[in-house]
Simulated assay, not measured.
Amino acid sequence: MDNKTKIPVYILSGFLGSGKTTVLLNMLEHCKNKGQHPGIILNELGQENVEGHLFEDKKVVELLNGCICCTIQDDLKETMDNLIAEMDSSPLDVLFIEGTGVANPLEIQESLLSKPYIDQFEIMSIITVLDASHYLEYQSVFSSSAEVRKLMKEQMVCGSLLLLNKTDLIRSEQLDKVIQKITKIAGVETELVKCSYGQIEAGMLFEKRFQSISIGKQHSDIDHHHHHHSTVQAIKLEDFPAFQQKTFEKWLKQLPNNVLRGKGIVEIENSNQFYSFQYASKKVTFTPVPSTLNKKNIIILIGTGLNNEAMNSHCKQLLEGI
């Protein structure tokens, strides 16, 4: 198979809550407008994907309960094998791979550059999304861990396009400071684009930026095959009643600082309506879930040090107090 017939691949990377899925949805809307048939590989740390309804009419493969850059890398290769086998009956125009918020995209990249995948797929860009509003906090030795700082460096160094998202949430002087620090790590040659709500001109998102010759640089900058997200876990809460929206928002904002991300589906009291919620940067948004979907209350919390009895007890106490 020659280059002209290879399927273009876009890898979406970025730390927890940076806005990867929002960027992906924007890219999918562009594909829809062009009449293209995209394939999507979604990777989640937890046991359940609570955002599946966002991709209801798309060809999606969910890789759950692990990270495709390490613990379930074989699952990624098996998925790619299946996509190749289905090419004739279910052709793809483009493939998107969204890693977990703690994935090192270098591992995903290397899988795609190996046989037989390099003959079928062509990496166009590794898009790393960064949360401008929390960047300085995540990089601080006083409010973050060495693991988180190292992981974010890996994601930036691997990125062929850096999207500095949520710029509307910080002041201009703070934004300038964030840009200076990112440029110092990623280098001036890596394009950095500011945005809010993941909105960026489609031509920039879909431009081919990946150069395989950059692997050598990445190997020298990254502690290869050493995974820095061993302390990041996901826990699932379920079997709880409907509650008032304001009460739930208050509960989320009272969660400990080591809860970096929250998402799920909840029923709002007296509304007979389920809502998908997204929690990051101490902010929460709600989106109605189509009534045609059979849904249940479920909350996924992702952060550091969450897989312990104390954290589970704390969450249950908060839920019982609602």
Rank of each mutant, 00 (worst) to 15 (best):
C67A: 08
L64A: 00
G99C: 12
F55N: 11
D131K: 03
L54S: 04
M124Y: 09
L92E: 03
I84P: 00
I84K: 00
S143N: 15
L64E: 06
C70D: 11
T79R: 06
L54T: 01
Q139K: 10
Y135W: 12
N82Y: 13
E56Y: 08
F96A: 00
I84C: 01
Y135F: 15
S114Y: 06
C70S: 11
S125V: 04
K58Y: 10
L83H: 09
E98Y: 02
M80N: 03
I84M: 06
L162G: 02
K58S: 06
M156S: 13
L54N: 04
K153I: 01
Q109G: 01
F142K: 14
K150M: 10
I127H: 00
E86I: 05
E110K: 10
L162W: 14
E137R: 05
M87R: 09
D75N: 12
S114G: 15
D74H: 07
K58W: 12
E137M: 07
A132Y: 08
D74E: 14
F96C: 02
Q120L: 10
L92T: 04
D74R: 12
L162T: 06
S143R: 13
Y138R: 14
L161T: 04
L161G: 01
T79A: 10
N104V: 07
L95G: 03
K166C: 08
L106A: 10
V50L: 14
I118A: 04
L54K: 04
A85P: 00
N104D: 13
P105C: 06
V148S: 00
M80R: 07
K166P: 03
H134G: 03
E110H: 09
K153W: 04
L112I: 08
C67G: 05
S143I: 09
A146F: 09
I126T: 08
K59G: 03
E98T: 11
D93T: 06
N49F: 02
A132W: 02
V157Q: 00
N104F: 05
L162V: 09
T71H: 08
L162A: 10
Q155L: 12
D81Q: 15
L112C: 06
I126L: 12
K115H: 14
L113S: 02
L113N: 06
M87W: 15
F142S: 07
K166G: 09
L151Q: 02
F96K: 00
N165G: 05
L112M: 12
E137K: 10
K115L: 13
L130C: 11
I127F: 06
P116G: 09
E56S: 13
I127N: 01
D119Y: 15
A146Q: 04
E98V: 08
M80Q: 01
L106V: 05
S89W: 09
V102Q: 08
I126C: 03
E98H: 13
M124W: 04
D74M: 12
G159R: 03
I84D: 02
E51K: 03
I72N: 13
M87N: 05
E78G: 08
L164M: 05
D88R: 07
L161S: 06
Q139L: 08
I84V: 12
A103P: 02
A103Q: 04
E154I: 06
F55L: 12
S125N: 14
A146C: 04
L164C: 10
A146P: 00
D81M: 11
Y117T: 06
L106S: 04
D81I: 11
T71N: 13
V141D: 15
K153Q: 12
E154H: 11
S90M: 03
V102P: 02
V102K: 05
L162R: 02
F55Q: 09
L106Q: 07
L76W: 07
L130F: 01
S114P: 13
